[in-house]
């Protein structure tokens, strides 16, 4: 069953431009993104800075203004909800951000932080302490840390607190925005294992926003690759990682440094020229045309469509589609 449907979402921000802010421009942070997240699955959204992956998550959370398009949760359009319905949706949909330090109030104890959504949503006062203990057990925190403050915890433990708080109201969907990228390497796998276990035990769906492709490959069921506000390729994670079709996906995968010196020089690496174009002045046709190694004349003319190539695999590249 589809839990979250994002339909042709556009988020455009007006900005001032020029050295003294005299000009006006429009940043099309997201320019027509459609994605679905089914119950109990992990959809990963990947891409580099400025691609719009975090803005997509923020739009779902109501933290970015929607210019056009729809977001439906359990079939209901989030734009037209009554206050009561909105409260219900906020229980079902929670978020874990990248930085566990700024996500927690330094003056509150761990137990107070975890209890916060319970208090806000009117959980019976007498039952809060028991629920906090339960949540601390669930995420692998020691109960005797309940009266500690975040400053006394390590980065990994703080992220566990943030996860416990996100789970307090039994959500069905958790939006994870770079949940492990601020953590030490030896701690990342602990938190990834925790997220995978919680998904199995609680039947959670994740919208997993990340830039680290080896992490994404490991935990995602499906993956969407974004570039300059558009999805350029989407499909089952195993399929996209094994057989990327879009030249950007290919370059992205080939650029991951592998922890194996024997691979050095043996891998075919596609080093892209140049930088991401300014989102104030994106290319007219395909967003990737300025850096694409296989671009043809018509790529700059019109924006290519996202075309299904089979089994839920969609690709926005007419050149590759013509050749296959």
């Amino acid at each position: 069953m589809t839990l979250l449907q994002i339909e042709d979402l556009k988020v455009h921000f007006p900005v001032r431009t020029g050295r003294f802010g005299g000009g006006k421009g429009l940043v099309k942070a997201i320019d027509g993104v459609s994605l679905n997240v089914a119950a109990k699955e992990t959809l990963a959204v990947v891409g580099e800075s400025g691609c719009g992956k975090s803005t997509t998550g923020n739009a779902v959370l109501g933290l970015a203004p929607i210019t056009d398009g729809r977001i439906r949760f359990e079939g209901r359009d989030l734009a037209g909800l009554s206050p009561a319905e909105r409260r219900h949706v906020w229980r079902e949909m929670q978020v874990v951000f990248q930085d566990p330090v700024s996500a927690l109030n330094p003056r509150r104890t761990i137990a107070q932080s975890i209890a916060e959504p319970l208090v806000i949503h009117g959980h019976p006062k007498t039952k809060i302490a028991a629920r906090v203990d339960e949540l601390m057990d669930l995420v692998g925190l020691n109960r005797d840390q309940r009266d500690r403050r975040p400053g006394a915890l390590s980065g990994g433990q703080r992220q566990r607190v943030v996860i416990a708080r996100a789970l307090a109201l039994n959500p069905r969907l958790v939006i994870c925005d770079e949940p492990v990228s601020a953590l030490d390497v030896s701690i990342q796998s602990q938190i990834l294992n925790l997220l995978m276990r919680l998904q199995r035990e609680l039947g959670l769906a994740y919208l997993f926003i990340a830039h680290d492709l080896s992490v994404v490959r490991h935990i995602a069921d499906r993956v969407a690759v974004m570039y300059l506000g558009l999805v350029v390729e989407e499909g089952p994670a195993a399929e996209v990682f094994a057989n990327p079709v879009h030249p950007y996906t290919e370059a992205l995968l080939s650029a991951i440094p592998l922890p194996d010196p024997r691979q050095r020089g043996r891998r075919k690496r596609i080093v892209l020229e140049g930088d991401l174009p300014s989102p104030l002045d994106p290319p007219k046709g395909c967003p990737f045309v300025t850096r694409c190694p296989i671009a043809e004349a018509d790529c700059a003319a019109a924006r290519p469509a996202l075309v299904e190539t089979g089994d839920g695999h969609r690709v926005r590249c007419p050149v590759r589609l013509r050749r296959t």
Binding site: S186, S189, L192, N193, I219, I256
Partner: peptide, 27 residues
């Protein structure tokens, strides 16, 4: 050895339990 084993590899099966070093990085 453990640090190298914790990195998710691009050539291993997905969704399985990742190898993790126990405890935290001590200050």
């Amino acid at each position: 050895r453990m640090l190298l084993r914790t990195i998710p590899r691009l050539d291993e099966p997905t969704k399985g339990e990742l190898f993790a070093i126990r405890g935290n990085v001590p200050s």
